[in-house]
Computed example of a mutant assay.
Amino acid sequence: MSRIVVVTGAGAGVGRAVVEEFAMQGYDVGLLSRDKDRIERAAADLRSRYGVRAVAISTDVADADAVETAASAVEDKLGPIDVWVNVAMATVFAPVSKLTAQEFERGTKVTYLGQVHGTMAALSRMRIRNRGTIVNVGSALGYRSVPLQSIYCGAKFAVRGFTDSLRSEILHDKLNIHLTMVDLPAVNTPQFDWALNKMGKKAQPVAPIYEPEVPARAIFFAATHKRRQVWVGWPTVKAILANRIAPGLIDRYLATAGYKGQLTDEPLPDDAPANLFEPVPGAYGAHGRFDSRSKAGSWEMFTDRHRAAFWTLAAIGVIGCVRLLAKKNKV
Protein backbone atom coordinates (compact mmCIF):
# COMPACT_ATOMS: atom_id res chain seq x y z
CA MET A 1 0.00 0.00 0.00
CA SER A 2 1.43 3.39 -1.01
CA ARG A 3 2.28 6.01 1.57
CA ILE A 4 1.43 9.62 0.86
CA VAL A 5 3.13 12.82 2.03
CA VAL A 6 2.18 16.45 1.46
CA VAL A 7 4.91 19.09 1.64
CA THR A 8 4.30 22.84 1.63
CA GLY A 9 6.98 25.11 0.21
CA ALA A 10 7.92 22.21 -2.05
CA GLY A 11 9.14 24.25 -5.00
CA ALA A 12 12.60 25.15 -3.69
CA GLY A 13 14.91 25.15 -0.68
CA VAL A 14 14.31 22.75 2.19
CA GLY A 15 10.84 21.86 0.89
CA ARG A 16 12.31 20.73 -2.44
CA ALA A 17 14.88 18.59 -0.62
CA VAL A 18 12.12 17.11 1.58
CA VAL A 19 10.01 15.90 -1.36
CA GLU A 20 13.14 14.38 -2.85
CA GLU A 21 13.89 12.52 0.40
CA PHE A 22 10.36 11.15 0.77
CA ALA A 23 10.18 10.13 -2.90
CA MET A 24 13.52 8.37 -2.53
CA GLN A 25 11.96 6.41 0.34
CA GLY A 26 9.02 5.36 -1.86
CA TYR A 27 6.37 7.89 -0.82
CA ASP A 28 3.88 9.35 -3.27
CA VAL A 29 4.08 13.12 -2.97
CA GLY A 30 1.76 16.12 -2.98
CA LEU A 31 3.77 19.27 -3.71
CA LEU A 32 2.28 22.60 -2.56
CA SER A 33 3.84 25.93 -3.49
CA ARG A 34 2.86 29.15 -5.25
CA ASP A 35 4.94 28.82 -8.43
CA LYS A 36 3.02 26.34 -10.57
CA ASP A 37 5.72 25.82 -13.20
CA ARG A 38 8.42 25.09 -10.64
CA ILE A 39 6.46 22.48 -8.68
CA GLU A 40 5.21 20.83 -11.87
CA ARG A 41 8.83 20.44 -13.01
CA ALA A 42 9.73 19.07 -9.58
CA ALA A 43 6.81 16.60 -9.67
CA ALA A 44 7.80 15.40 -13.15
CA ASP A 45 11.37 14.91 -11.95
CA LEU A 46 10.20 12.80 -8.97
CA ARG A 47 8.00 10.63 -11.18
CA SER A 48 10.85 10.09 -13.65
CA ARG A 49 13.62 9.39 -11.13
CA TYR A 50 11.79 7.42 -8.44
CA GLY A 51 8.70 6.03 -10.14
CA VAL A 52 6.37 7.54 -7.53
CA ARG A 53 3.13 9.37 -8.06
CA ALA A 54 3.51 13.13 -7.61
CA VAL A 55 0.85 15.82 -7.75
CA ALA A 56 1.72 19.53 -7.96
CA ILE A 57 -0.88 22.00 -6.70
CA SER A 58 -0.26 25.74 -6.84
CA THR A 59 -1.14 26.92 -3.32
CA ASP A 60 -0.60 30.01 -1.22
CA VAL A 61 -0.44 28.66 2.35
CA ALA A 62 -1.51 32.06 3.69
CA ASP A 63 -4.96 31.26 2.27
CA ALA A 64 -6.70 28.71 4.53
CA ASP A 65 -9.32 27.84 1.92
CA ALA A 66 -6.63 27.22 -0.70
CA VAL A 67 -4.80 24.84 1.63
CA GLU A 68 -8.01 22.96 2.40
CA THR A 69 -8.78 22.67 -1.31
CA ALA A 70 -5.25 21.42 -2.00
CA ALA A 71 -5.54 18.75 0.73
CA SER A 72 -8.78 17.49 -0.82
CA ALA A 73 -7.19 17.45 -4.28
CA VAL A 74 -4.24 15.38 -3.02
CA GLU A 75 -6.54 12.82 -1.42
CA ASP A 76 -8.73 12.67 -4.54
CA LYS A 77 -5.70 11.97 -6.76
CA LEU A 78 -3.39 9.97 -4.48
CA GLY A 79 -5.39 8.72 -1.49
CA PRO A 80 -5.39 9.34 2.29
CA ILE A 81 -2.57 11.56 3.50
CA ASP A 82 -0.16 9.78 5.87
CA VAL A 83 2.31 12.60 6.51
CA TRP A 84 1.95 16.37 6.26
CA VAL A 85 5.10 18.52 6.40
CA ASN A 86 4.82 22.31 6.88
CA VAL A 87 7.92 23.91 5.37
CA ALA A 88 6.71 27.07 3.59
CA MET A 89 8.17 30.30 4.97
CA ALA A 90 8.92 33.91 4.13
CA THR A 91 11.38 36.36 5.60
CA VAL A 92 12.44 39.98 5.20
CA PHE A 93 15.90 41.38 5.88
CA ALA A 94 15.26 44.78 7.48
CA PRO A 95 15.05 46.43 10.91
CA VAL A 96 11.57 46.94 12.34
CA SER A 97 11.81 50.68 11.67
CA LYS A 98 11.92 49.99 7.89
CA LEU A 99 9.08 47.47 7.78
CA THR A 100 5.43 48.07 6.99
CA ALA A 101 2.39 46.59 8.68
CA GLN A 102 1.52 44.88 5.40
CA GLU A 103 4.91 43.17 5.30
CA PHE A 104 4.51 41.97 8.88
CA GLU A 105 1.05 40.65 8.10
CA ARG A 106 2.12 38.84 4.95
CA GLY A 107 5.26 37.29 6.47
CA THR A 108 3.31 36.12 9.52
CA LYS A 109 0.52 34.65 7.40
CA VAL A 110 2.98 32.60 5.36
CA THR A 111 5.40 31.47 8.06
CA TYR A 112 3.05 31.06 11.02
CA LEU A 113 -0.52 30.81 9.75
CA GLY A 114 0.71 28.74 6.81
CA GLN A 115 1.70 26.04 9.30
CA VAL A 116 -1.58 26.45 11.17
CA HIS A 117 -3.57 26.09 7.95
CA GLY A 118 -1.60 23.03 6.88
CA THR A 119 -1.93 21.41 10.28
CA MET A 120 -5.67 22.02 10.41
CA ALA A 121 -6.20 20.57 6.94
CA ALA A 122 -4.17 17.48 7.81
CA LEU A 123 -5.61 17.06 11.31
CA SER A 124 -9.25 17.16 10.20
CA ARG A 125 -8.56 14.18 7.94
CA MET A 126 -6.27 12.28 10.29
CA ARG A 127 -8.73 12.51 13.19
CA ILE A 128 -11.33 10.61 11.17
CA ARG A 129 -8.86 7.79 10.45
CA ASN A 130 -7.10 8.10 13.85
CA ARG A 131 -3.67 7.90 12.27
CA GLY A 132 -1.11 10.13 10.62
CA THR A 133 1.91 12.34 11.22
CA ILE A 134 2.30 16.12 11.12
CA VAL A 135 5.75 17.71 10.99
CA ASN A 136 6.07 21.41 11.80
CA VAL A 137 9.35 22.99 10.81
CA GLY A 138 10.81 25.42 13.31
CA SER A 139 14.14 27.14 13.68
CA ALA A 140 16.83 28.03 16.14
CA LEU A 141 15.47 31.55 15.56
CA GLY A 142 12.23 30.43 17.18
CA TYR A 143 14.15 30.31 20.48
CA ARG A 144 16.77 33.03 19.99
CA SER A 145 15.71 35.94 17.80
CA VAL A 146 18.18 37.91 15.72
CA PRO A 147 18.03 41.47 14.40
CA LEU A 148 16.88 42.12 10.81
CA GLN A 149 14.49 39.14 10.78
CA SER A 150 11.82 40.12 13.29
CA ILE A 151 8.97 38.91 11.05
CA TYR A 152 10.45 35.44 10.64
CA CYS A 153 11.58 35.10 14.25
CA GLY A 154 8.21 36.15 15.63
CA ALA A 155 6.43 33.68 13.36
CA LYS A 156 8.70 30.80 14.36
CA PHE A 157 8.12 31.54 18.05
CA ALA A 158 4.39 31.37 17.31
CA VAL A 159 4.75 28.03 15.50
CA ARG A 160 6.41 26.59 18.58
CA GLY A 161 3.63 27.78 20.90
CA PHE A 162 0.93 26.50 18.56
CA THR A 163 2.60 23.10 18.23
CA ASP A 164 2.94 22.62 21.99
CA SER A 165 -0.72 23.52 22.55
CA LEU A 166 -1.89 21.11 19.89
CA ARG A 167 0.32 18.32 21.16
CA SER A 168 -1.40 18.42 24.55
CA GLU A 169 -4.80 18.38 22.87
CA ILE A 170 -3.87 15.32 20.82
CA LEU A 171 -2.75 13.56 24.00
CA HIS A 172 -5.96 14.59 25.78
CA ASP A 173 -8.08 13.15 22.97
CA LYS A 174 -5.96 9.94 22.92
CA LEU A 175 -5.43 10.21 19.18
CA ASN A 176 -3.01 8.00 17.30
CA ILE A 177 -1.55 11.04 15.54
CA HIS A 178 2.12 11.90 15.82
CA LEU A 179 2.99 15.62 16.00
CA THR A 180 6.64 16.53 15.87
CA MET A 181 8.74 19.65 15.36
CA VAL A 182 12.10 19.92 13.61
CA ASP A 183 14.20 23.00 14.39
CA LEU A 184 16.70 24.03 11.72
CA PRO A 185 20.02 25.86 11.63
CA ALA A 186 21.24 28.09 8.78
CA VAL A 187 20.59 26.29 5.49
CA ASN A 188 21.91 26.90 1.97
CA THR A 189 18.66 27.73 0.15
CA PRO A 190 17.54 30.29 -2.46
CA GLN A 191 15.81 32.42 0.20
CA PHE A 192 18.92 34.58 0.52
CA ASP A 193 18.57 35.55 -3.16
CA TRP A 194 14.83 36.19 -3.27
CA ALA A 195 13.77 37.31 0.22
CA LEU A 196 12.72 40.96 0.40
CA ASN A 197 15.86 42.83 1.43
CA LYS A 198 16.02 46.49 2.47
CA MET A 199 19.64 46.51 3.62
CA GLY A 200 21.40 47.41 0.35
CA LYS A 201 23.70 44.38 0.58
CA LYS A 202 23.14 40.75 -0.35
CA ALA A 203 22.00 38.51 2.50
CA GLN A 204 23.74 35.36 3.68
CA PRO A 205 23.15 32.61 6.26
CA VAL A 206 25.21 32.76 9.44
CA ALA A 207 27.88 30.07 9.41
CA PRO A 208 28.03 27.17 9.89
CA ILE A 209 25.70 26.50 6.98
CA TYR A 210 24.09 23.15 6.15
CA GLU A 211 23.00 21.76 2.81
CA PRO A 212 19.18 21.36 2.53
CA GLU A 213 19.49 17.57 2.41
CA VAL A 214 20.52 17.60 6.08
CA PRO A 215 17.21 19.01 7.38
CA ALA A 216 15.36 16.92 4.77
CA ARG A 217 16.79 13.73 6.29
CA ALA A 218 15.97 15.02 9.77
CA ILE A 219 12.38 15.75 8.76
CA PHE A 220 11.95 12.28 7.28
CA PHE A 221 13.44 10.78 10.44
CA ALA A 222 11.10 12.82 12.66
CA ALA A 223 8.13 11.75 10.56
CA THR A 224 8.95 8.05 10.82
CA HIS A 225 10.14 7.84 14.44
CA LYS A 226 8.44 8.77 17.68
CA ARG A 227 10.41 11.89 18.46
CA ARG A 228 8.72 14.87 20.10
CA GLN A 229 11.31 17.21 18.67
CA VAL A 230 14.52 17.15 16.63
CA TRP A 231 17.19 19.84 16.75
CA VAL A 232 19.27 19.85 13.57
CA GLY A 233 22.89 20.88 13.86
CA TRP A 234 25.06 21.78 16.81
CA PRO A 235 24.53 25.54 16.18
CA THR A 236 20.80 25.04 16.83
CA VAL A 237 21.54 23.31 20.12
CA LYS A 238 23.99 26.04 21.15
CA ALA A 239 21.59 28.87 20.26
CA ILE A 240 18.71 27.34 22.21
CA LEU A 241 20.72 26.45 25.29
CA ALA A 242 22.81 29.64 25.35
CA ASN A 243 19.70 31.80 25.25
CA ARG A 244 18.39 30.01 28.33
CA ILE A 245 21.58 30.80 30.21
CA ALA A 246 22.55 34.34 29.15
CA PRO A 247 19.91 36.06 27.01
CA GLY A 248 21.03 39.57 27.92
CA LEU A 249 24.60 38.88 26.90
CA ILE A 250 23.40 37.49 23.56
CA ASP A 251 21.25 40.61 23.02
CA ARG A 252 24.37 42.75 23.19
CA TYR A 253 26.43 40.41 21.03
CA LEU A 254 23.79 40.33 18.29
CA ALA A 255 23.43 44.11 18.36
CA THR A 256 26.71 44.19 16.41
CA ALA A 257 27.50 40.69 15.10
CA GLY A 258 23.89 40.02 14.11
CA TYR A 259 24.01 42.68 11.41
CA LYS A 260 27.30 41.95 9.68
CA GLY A 261 26.85 38.20 10.06
CA GLN A 262 23.71 38.22 7.90
CA LEU A 263 25.00 40.53 5.18
CA THR A 264 27.79 40.19 2.63
CA ASP A 265 29.89 43.02 1.23
CA GLU A 266 28.23 42.64 -2.17
CA PRO A 267 25.82 45.43 -3.10
CA LEU A 268 22.21 44.39 -3.65
CA PRO A 269 21.07 45.10 -7.23
CA ASP A 270 18.26 47.62 -7.61
CA ASP A 271 16.20 45.00 -9.43
CA ALA A 272 16.78 42.22 -6.88
CA PRO A 273 13.80 39.80 -6.77
CA ALA A 274 11.51 39.67 -3.74
CA ASN A 275 9.07 36.81 -3.13
CA LEU A 276 7.08 38.12 -0.16
CA PHE A 277 3.91 39.03 -2.06
CA GLU A 278 4.49 37.24 -5.37
CA PRO A 279 6.52 34.12 -6.25
CA VAL A 280 9.81 34.64 -8.05
CA PRO A 281 9.89 32.66 -11.31
CA GLY A 282 12.93 30.71 -12.40
CA ALA A 283 14.66 27.35 -12.22
CA TYR A 284 15.39 27.45 -8.49
CA GLY A 285 16.03 24.18 -6.69
CA ALA A 286 16.92 23.01 -3.21
CA HIS A 287 20.33 24.71 -3.05
CA GLY A 288 21.30 28.35 -2.83
CA ARG A 289 24.63 29.90 -3.78
CA PHE A 290 26.61 28.73 -0.72
CA ASP A 291 27.54 25.15 -1.66
CA SER A 292 31.25 25.78 -1.14
CA ARG A 293 30.61 26.87 2.47
CA SER A 294 27.99 24.30 3.45
CA LYS A 295 28.09 21.07 5.43
CA ALA A 296 26.54 17.86 4.15
CA GLY A 297 26.09 16.23 7.56
CA SER A 298 25.19 16.96 11.17
CA TRP A 299 26.87 15.38 14.19
CA GLU A 300 23.92 16.32 16.40
CA MET A 301 21.49 14.72 13.96
CA PHE A 302 23.58 11.54 14.02
CA THR A 303 23.33 11.35 17.80
CA ASP A 304 19.56 11.83 17.64
CA ARG A 305 19.16 9.07 15.05
CA HIS A 306 21.28 6.71 17.11
CA ARG A 307 20.66 8.12 20.56
CA ALA A 308 20.37 4.76 22.34
CA ALA A 309 23.78 3.65 21.10
CA PHE A 310 25.24 7.13 21.64
CA TRP A 311 24.13 7.42 25.26
CA THR A 312 25.17 3.82 25.94
CA LEU A 313 28.67 4.59 24.68
CA ALA A 314 28.69 7.87 26.60
CA ALA A 315 27.69 6.04 29.80
CA ILE A 316 30.39 3.42 29.24
CA GLY A 317 32.90 6.23 28.77
CA VAL A 318 31.84 7.95 32.00
CA ILE A 319 32.00 4.67 33.93
CA GLY A 320 35.45 4.03 32.52
CA CYS A 321 36.66 7.46 33.60
CA VAL A 322 35.22 6.99 37.10
CA ARG A 323 36.96 3.62 37.46
CA LEU A 324 40.23 5.05 36.20
CA LEU A 325 40.06 7.91 38.71
CA ALA A 326 39.22 5.44 41.48
CA LYS A 327 42.27 3.36 40.66
CA LYS A 328 44.49 6.44 40.64
CA ASN A 329 43.14 7.49 44.03
CA LYS A 330 43.93 4.06 45.48
CA VAL A 331 47.49 4.35 44.24
Rank of each mutant, 00 (worst) to 15 (best):
H306Y: 14
A257M: 09
A44K: 07
S168E: 14
L46N: 03
F310Q: 08
R34Q: 14
L196Q: 03
R16E: 15
T100W: 06
R38I: 12
L148W: 01
F104R: 01
P215M: 07
A255C: 08
R323S: 10
A94T: 08
G320S: 07
D82N: 10
R305D: 05
S72Y: 08
G30H: 03
A272D: 08
P80H: 06
G79A: 09
D270S: 09
H172V: 05
L276Q: 07
G132V: 05
K226M: 12
K295P: 02
S58I: 08
E266W: 04
Y112R: 04
H172E: 10
R307A: 10
L184W: 00
R252K: 15
G142F: 00
G13W: 00
G15S: 10
G297R: 14
V6D: 02
A54E: 09
P215Q: 09
G26E: 12
A255G: 15
H172Y: 09
G51C: 09
V83C: 02
F310S: 10
H287V: 13
I151Y: 01
A155I: 07
A158I: 11
P80E: 10
V230I: 15
A56M: 06
G15Y: 03
Y259R: 12
V182H: 00
I240D: 04
G30V: 09
P190M: 00
R41I: 12
G138S: 06
V92G: 00
P208E: 14
Y152R: 00
R41S: 12
D291H: 06
V214L: 07
E20A: 04
R144K: 12
L179T: 02
V29I: 14
G161S: 13
D76C: 07
A286C: 04
L196C: 01
K330N: 13
W311E: 12
R252W: 15
G26T: 13
T119N: 05
V322M: 13
R131C: 07
P279W: 01
L313Q: 10
S97P: 06
I319Y: 09
K201P: 01
V7W: 00
A23V: 12
N136G: 03
V83H: 00
A239C: 11
V214F: 02
V146D: 10
T8G: 01
H172A: 08
Q149F: 04
D35M: 05
V92F: 02
T100S: 15
V85W: 01
I81S: 03
F157K: 00
S294D: 09
R305W: 11
L171M: 08
G142T: 06
E75L: 04
R293D: 15
Y27I: 11
L184C: 01
G142I: 04
S33W: 03
N329A: 14
K330H: 14
G11V: 05
G200A: 03
Q262L: 11
A314G: 02
A43N: 06
I39Q: 02
N329Y: 14
K202I: 04
A314Y: 06
V318M: 11
G9W: 01
V85Q: 03
Q115K: 06
M181C: 02
L325H: 08
A121D: 01
A101R: 14
A44N: 10
D291N: 09
F290M: 07
V182N: 00
L196N: 00
P279Y: 01
D65M: 10
A43V: 08
V96W: 08
S168L: 11
L325K: 10
